[in-house]
Design a protein around this nucleic acid. Structure first.
Lengths: 334, 334
DNA sequence: CCTCCTGATGCAAACGTTTGTATAATAAAA
DNA sequence: TTTTATTATACAAACGTTTGCATCAGGAGG
């Protein structure tokens, strides 16, 4: 790889002049500049981003820490992040934790070691201390999807309203006994959906059924098994509300297997809204999370924070919080 | 952030001693070492990966360039890559190109500028020259899913056999007239599936129907529209074979809308095998691509290439090619 | 004619590491 | 006792940039 030095030699000037010429950062004689550009082109010069980053203390890279990508909303969010980040001149580094606190810790430790300017994380909530440390050490942190620490910026959807809206929607559709399939209540998106749902249930006088299972929570299998159990225990169930799409698919499966007609006898609605919902044989109604926009928003937010002048003085900027509304996409399962 | 210098000062030794102590790379007196470790801990020292990378000429980062993540097999592959890369001590940088050659070029240019040791790419095939340049400039390149240049290493699945197997499978199931929905033939995975399929079709004496549409090719809409057209033109169609899952889902939709019974009247099979196939109301048969393993394989391959001693002499290592078998996952749509 | 800007360039330090070489002290061998 | 290893440490260069400072020519203002 050609370096500044090589270009300087070929153009018979000092490296500093080359640097200034290439970056347009000071007076350089037009002739000299032309010579330098020619030399750079001839040698196929590309600046070493690493050296630039080291010198300037800016890495132009953000790290994204998510549980997983496949079959989750995070793949879409990540696309949003990456696109926006690239547009703003940033690289996107990715880590998948499988929601394992240990893996997450490892990822965060790796990321803090000088490779990223900021971290966007949908975390387990078990490394709060570490995140604070990271934030204090000058790396911006934005919480994504899951808000666990109000002192750290965040981009989330309005889960509470989502849960309430879903309950009301089903009520309006004539449902009176709803099965509620969720993820772990330790995670805000699930807990808040539950809270919103529950409040609305009380107000509306709906009946609600909750189910427990020890299967991995955010999975098709879990949705399937929960739905089975619910249907076993409550023959009068007329709706199933699932936190995420794969659970909803599992529920549909269970319902279909019993020969129950969707949506006539029972309705199924998901509360995340992954593209797949619209691709089914009987398309699934869901509350759509504006994942791509949320990703873009998170990228934008963190880059703004990174570039904040206050950052330079070691000050921690005030946390920003942004929340997106989820909108009901009505389809055939309800 | 604490630096080596800070630790050195606190421990009253030279930075070089600190470096050696922390890296266990030379004799350091046990007492000194203890002092250094203590100092490092007290200051919360973390090595600056950037500086290390600059000094050592190793960035411990690989770049991954794919068309998109959401609703494609690439999200699963990426998970495989990231996991394996992390395990081997590498970071994973991600770029989504939307299969736009210009975006791809931009991504590749950015990546070559010293930030990655290697690039794993599922490309458009329109930047072959640039890829060769990159490879020549000392950055390892591995082609993923799509093999476009036999001089560059690759990890792909055996699409030809996949196409042939699918044809034979449908034939054995009693199908005699198969609609074939594909992606662009400029891309090897689609072209090869077609070739394999076509050859088998000739041998078996099957009838085949191909469809064109000007919609974005790798989409639900495209699958839906192709299937509609085929069903319009050929009332005796008894099977639809789709290249990727989302197309298959579109086809299922079109078939269902006409009131045709799957699999009795018509069978639908996909040739990629994304987890979603098994989550449908009527689960979809598909040829499963071992995406996660392919991702791991690509990561492993590129890291091995990066670490090859020959690399240091500027030599380009001989390309490696690995191909994975795709296996039929038989489900309810056939 | 001297001073003072302005444009153009070079020198050298810095970013935070790693690493080759030099040096000193102690221990072992001759 | 002198020589030679061995252990322990420091010094300084290097990686490829950016950037503050110094230098210097030439033209303008006095």
């Amino acid at each position: 790889m050609a370096t500044l030095k090589d270009v300087a030699r070929l153009a018979c000037v000092d490296v500093s002049t080359v640097s200034r010429a290439l970056n347009n950062t000071s007076y350089v004689h037009p002739d000299t500049k032309a010579r330098i550009y020619a030399a750079a082109k001839e040698l196929g010069y590309h600046p070493n981003v690493l050296a630039q980053a080291l010198r300037q203390g800016k890495r132009h890279t953000i790290g994204v820490v998510v549980p997983r990508l496949h079959m989750t909303i995070f793949s879409e969010i990540l696309q949003g992040i990456e696109g926006k980040a690239r547009q703003l001149g940033y690289y996107t580094l990715i880590c998948a934790t499988e929601d394992d606190p240990k893996t997450e810790k490892e990822c965060l430790s790796r990321l803090r070691n000088g490779f990223v300017d900021g971290i966007i994380i949908a975390g387990t909530g078990r490394n709060g201390r570490l995140l604070r440390d990271i934030q204090a050490s000058g790396i911006s942190v934005v919480q994504l999807v899951r808000r666990q620490d109000s002192q750290l910026s965040s981009v989330v959807a309005d889960y509470k309203t989502c849960g309430a809206d879903a309950a009301r929607y089903l009520y309006d559709k004539g449902c009176r006994k709803v099965g509620f399939i969720s993820g772990s209540f330790h995670l805000s998106p699930y807990k808040e959906r539950f809270d919103g749902f529950n409040k609305a249930v009380q107000e509306l006088g709906l009946q609600a059924v909750f189910s427990q299972s020890d299967l991995a929570v955010n999975s098709f299998e879990y949705g399937y098994q929960c739905a089975q159990q619910m249907l076993d225990d409550h023959s009068d169930l007329d709706a199933i509300l699932a936190a995420v799409d794969v659970q909803g698919l599992g529920a549909i499966r269970a319902v279909t297997e019993r020969g129950l007609k969707i949506p006539r006898q029972i309705k199924v609605v998901s509360m995340t809204g992954h593209e797949v919902g619209g691709m089914l044989q009987t398309t699934m109604t869901s509350m759509e999370m504006p994942a791509h926009r949320m990703g873009e928003s998170a990228a934008q937010m963190i880059i703004e924070e990174i570039q904040l002048p206050a950052r330079k003085d070691g000050q921690i900027p005030a946390p920003q919080h942004r929340s997106f509304a989820m909108v009901l996409e009505e389809r055939e399962t309800s």
